[in-house]
Amino acid sequence: MRRSMLFFPGNSANMLLNADFLGSDSMILDLEDAVAPTEKDSARILVRNAIRDLGYTREVIVRINPVDSPYWEKDLQTIIPVKPDMIMPTKVSCADDVKIISDYIAGLEEQLGMEVGTVKLIPLIETALGVENAYQIASSDPRVEAIFLGGEDLTADLRCKRTKEGNEIFYARSRMVMAARAAGVDVYDTPWTDVEDYEGLIKDAEFAKSLGFTGKSSISPRHVTFINEVFSPTEEEIQYARDVFATIEKAKAEGKGVVSLRGKMIDAPIVARAAQVLEAAEAMKGGR
């Protein structure tokens, strides 16, 4: 279960040392914007060693440099051998961008004797063209497990101002959710960038959830608590999900075919949703 994702600068030894303890469901170890061009080499080696030796228990995503940069191949050559859960390609604008990376990873996986397709992808969509091509990107490759909206770069591309209200990315958010769900993958929201404004963060996260986002990313560990709360099922939702399964069990025992709960027929989507809720509730136990 992935509700929150937290970014960590790839060249910070101290942050990588603590990345596993800061509460996010996934951690994004960043080789791109958080690393100066002169430190790309040291960051990728540091991130590789951290993944290899620190025994991370949470999902590891490595954000690599864009395909039009001189770094992305070196990034993958260095990182794929330590088997991150996912790679986050950046500035993805079309299905071909995904294909290039997927094929390159496949080559590395073969060389390394790994099963081809082991490492998954979560493309970062942060251009107008990328948003327009979101469905093609989401359905471009079996490695793609989710897509991710980058609001800051997108608004630069749209030549508009990024605001707290977020009207300027409303279309992009809706489009991303639609594309992801149509392609059967998850979808993650852009970080909230005002570190101190928790109320704004909660409102923004609740809005993203209401649109259908799976979860939200963050640049501040303090935000993670709130994001996890927003994207976790509520007590009521958990009780309802339990009731769904209890009702099904009871119906089975009584030999009934069609069952209903609180006046509504329990159909496949309701069962699927209830299963998701209980899975999420189980994963939430005993942590942040």
Binding site: N14, M15, F21, L22, G23, S220, P221, R222, T225, R288
Partner: peptide
């Protein structure tokens, strides 16, 4: 410091 903030939380 993020670590300090988590401890505080």
């Amino acid at each position: 410091d993020p670590v300090g903030l988590v401890i505080a939380d």
